[in-house]
Write a protein that binds this DNA or RNA. Structure first.
Lengths: 234, 234
DNA sequence: GTAATAGTGTCTATAAGACATTATATA
DNA sequence: TATATAATGTCTTATAGACACTATTAC
């Protein structure tokens, strides 16, 4: 049996790129220029270029780099969403990726580049189907929700969220980030213990003043591998 | 930009179906009848029938039901494997699924059905690239290894492996199963505590004798949901 | 009775949660 | 000095690990 017996399905790649900005969790959305769902907001993505991309991950990475100017420090496959009805053009599958970046590292904040058709959208906005930017194109809201669940789950047992922070950051920023992702308060002592135990970071030697005692800045160690813990946070 | 500008990639579905049999972990492999990789062993799967299947999960489920005679009690998406080179026919992606079943519930043991081209293959065999059944077709060995990692990981924090057992089973069988999956000994006390705490099972009232004290038989409660724990086993 | 497997009691070890305390900065 | 935020000390709690013990069956 060969594929020639069948109508080939459409195959696309879409990415949910998270960042932390203005004390809230946001994802990158683009306004669609073309049909279907013209002028709706959508996840960055598109068709695979079989000549240029060696794998779907390449496609995801290229599309994100095009939009942000940088390669996200974390990119993993999320899930593939497929159905007869998710795309009006026919049976389709989208290989979805999940990525993290510090918005400060992208060119999206820069004024000349500032693009009305590419926006960091607050996750809170996307939970309410009647809010701005809604409804999203295709099943992108469902993909976003799947990604958010994955992020929350991984925040419970790994250091993953640090990839939302800039290259140098304080423990306080890390603490705030985790509380925003999980939507509840976490003892800073617990996070600091894990931060230390992970052995992924080193002091820069610099401190940053916040109106009170100056906080130590940390950076990821060269070649540090992402650490998972044996227990979940509460 | 539409897909018509591109050569469409090939899209298939493949499943890694695990069971426990003769005190070892096995997966279902089929001998390929057609090119490419004719006569090589491969995971059950194939192209999506866009007229019959509403989603890729439907395809996975249909293919497994065709081969085993029953619908596996556990089926989840694993990962999508894609590259320019994994299929000699061109750029291709395979949406891989991960499934568990009790071999006793399938028709694969039944003598008249017994099919030389469908075999339960020991996982130990597949770790050694020079052993029987190797090399597998396409990148199916890599897909299998990804699935095995997922199974081991989930065995550490969930009751998932029970779906490898028949409808009625003893705590001793569950204990043996977990030790086989993890490849190391686990305190039965620890497993029994989790088994109880999960609240997923009920006594059938029947016991089964094993030459010594009779063991209680358990079954999954009606509508029981799979439970995850907050810590991993050691 | 012995042997074998099923199942429990209970102590220890580890890491998270709670929360008080000390440290260092600015005004 | 007061106050704000950074960072640490230490006690409690929850659950896994170790391992000895009791229970029930066949012989």
């Amino acid at each position: 049996m060969t594929q020639e017996n069948f109508t080939p399905p459409l195959l696309t790649v879409d990415s949910v790129l998270f960042t932390i900005k203005d004390n809230s969790l946001k994802i990158l959305l683009l306004k669609r220029k073309n049909s279907p769902f013209q002028n709706s907001w959508a996840l960055p993505g598109g068709f695979i270029d079989v000549d240029k991309d060696n794998s779907a991950e390449d496609t995801a990475s290229h599309k994100l780099t095009d939009k942000t100017g940088v390669t996200p420090p974390y990119l993993e496959q999320l899930n593939t969403f497929s159905s007869k009805s998710r795309d009006p053009r026919g049976w389709s599958a989208s290989i979805a990726y999940f990525a993290l970046i510090a918005h400060e590292e992208t060119n999206l904040d820069v004024t000349p580049k500032n693009d009305e058709n590419a926006q960091w959208v607050d996750v809170g906005n996307l939970m309410d189907e009647t809010a701005d930017y809604q409804p999203l194109a295709f099943d992108h809201r469902q993909i976003f929700q799947f990604a958010l669940e994955r992020l929350k789950q991984k925040a419970l047992y790994s250091m993953l969220p640090v990839f939302c922070l800039p290259k140098e950051f304080t423990l306080g920023e890390y603490h705030t980030l985790i509380e925003i992702i999980l939507g509840k308060s976490i003892q800073k002592k617990t996070l600091y213990r894990r931060f230390e135990a992970s052995n992924m970071f080193e002091e820069t030697g610099e401190t940053v003043a916040t109106g009170a005692r100056a906080a130590m800045l940390y950076r990821l160690k060269e070649g540090a591998k992402l650490v998972n813990f044996e227990r979940n946070l509460g």
